[in-house]
């Protein structure tokens, strides 16, 4: 094997929509807002001022979370489809590559929650008979997701086999 070329995996070609960064940031901010808001309410009734201190600490953590996490996630999320297969990569410290053959796809769903709609985004879920769960690409541009879902559905129908 010494003369054979060395094999490695490359990342799939595409990233999700850039607007996904804003969406994830908004989700983080909304989550922390509840926590910090509760502490501020507590501060009103608590004269010792401890609630204000913890609220300030939470604010610092929240700011870091909201600025770092969405960008990082954007940088590590990759996806790609070919007529034969769908690929995704995710994970920060622990990267996970996933590959599913188009011939084994059972369903393709796009999901657009209220937050997704706000940013014109969608999540694409590709389900196979695999017991390891489905592939999810979150934060796609809504149009791209719809087009992709159509394409995959068409390919799946054109491929023979019962998908198990």
């Amino acid at each position: 094997m010494s003369d054979s070329p060395r094999l490695r995996l490359r990342f799939p070609q595409h990233r999700v929509s850039r607007r996904a960064v804003a969406m994830w940031a908004a989700q983080v901010v909304a989550g922390w807002a509840v926590v910090i808001g509760a502490q501020l309410v507590a501060a009103v009734f608590d004269p010792s001022g401890w609630a204000l201190v913890t609220a300030a600490m939470c604010l610092v953590v929240a700011a870091a979370h909201a600025t770092v996490m969405p960008w990082w996630r954007y940088r590590v999320h990759h996806w790609e489809t070919t007529p034969e297969a769908v690929y995704t990569v995710s994970g920060w410290f622990d990267q996970e590559w996933r590959a599913a053959p188009v011939s084994r796809i059972q369903t393709v769903d796009t999901r657009r929650g209220p937050v997704h709609r706000l940013f014109g985004l969608a999540a694409l879920t590709v389900t196979t008979a695999s017991a390891a769960g489905s592939l999810v690409i979150d934060g796609l541009d809504a149009e791209v997701a719809a087009r992709l879902a159509d394409e995959l559905t068409r390919l799946t129908q054109a491929t023979p086999g019962d998908a198990t």
Partner: peptide, 24 residues
């Protein structure tokens, strides 16, 4: 290297699209 080759040989063409061959 071995893992990628194993996957590619077990189910040809599935993972292969993402495999890059580097000069050693």
């Amino acid at each position: 290297h071995d893992g990628i080759r194993l996957a590619d040989e077990a189910v040809p063409g599935l993972l292969g699209h993402l495999v890059v061959r580097d000069a050693r």
